[in-house]
Amino acid sequence: MLDLRPPENLVSSRAVLYWAARAALGWLVPLAAEVLWQRFGDVGLPVTILLIATAVLALAHVIVMPEWRYRVHRWETTPDVVYTQSGWFNQERRIAPVSRIQTVDTERGPIERIFGLANLTVTTASARGPVRIHALDFTTAQRIAAELAARTQASVGDAT
Rank of each mutant, 00 (worst) to 15 (best):
L2F: 11
L2K: 11
D3G: 07
N9H: 12
L10A: 04
S12T: 02
S13K: 11
R14N: 05
A15T: 00
A15Q: 04
V16L: 02
V16T: 03
A20I: 01
A24F: 03
L25K: 01
G26H: 08
W27Y: 02
L31G: 11
E34H: 02
E34W: 15
L36M: 15
Q38N: 15
Q38D: 14
F40Y: 05
G41H: 11
G41E: 09
G41A: 09
G41L: 07
D42G: 11
V47C: 13
T54P: 08
A55C: 10
A55K: 05
L57T: 02
L59Y: 06
H61Q: 14
H61I: 06
I63N: 12
P66C: 04
E67K: 13
E67V: 14
W68N: 01
W68T: 05
W68G: 03
R69A: 11
Y70R: 03
Y70E: 00
Y70Q: 00
Y70S: 00
R71S: 07
R71G: 06
R71W: 00
R74E: 06
E76Y: 03
E76C: 08
T78K: 03
D80C: 07
V82W: 01
Y83P: 03
T84R: 00
T84N: 01
G87I: 03
W88C: 02
Q91H: 14
Q91A: 10
R93D: 11
R93W: 05
R94V: 15
I95C: 09
A96T: 05
P97N: 14
V98T: 08
I101A: 04
I101C: 07
V104I: 07
D105Q: 10
D105M: 03
T106P: 07
T106W: 07
E107Q: 08
R108N: 12
P110N: 05
R113Q: 03
G116R: 04
G116Q: 03
L117W: 00
L117G: 02
A118S: 08
N119G: 13
N119L: 07
T121D: 07
V122L: 09
A125T: 06
S126F: 10
G129R: 02
R132H: 12
I133L: 08
I133E: 02
H134S: 04
D137C: 00
D137G: 00
F138I: 12
T139P: 07
T140I: 03
T140R: 04
T140P: 02
T140Y: 02
A141W: 03
Q142N: 15
A146D: 13
L148K: 04
A149L: 13
A149G: 14
R151H: 08
T152C: 11
Q153I: 07
Q153E: 15
A154T: 06
A154V: 05
D158Q: 14
A159Q: 09
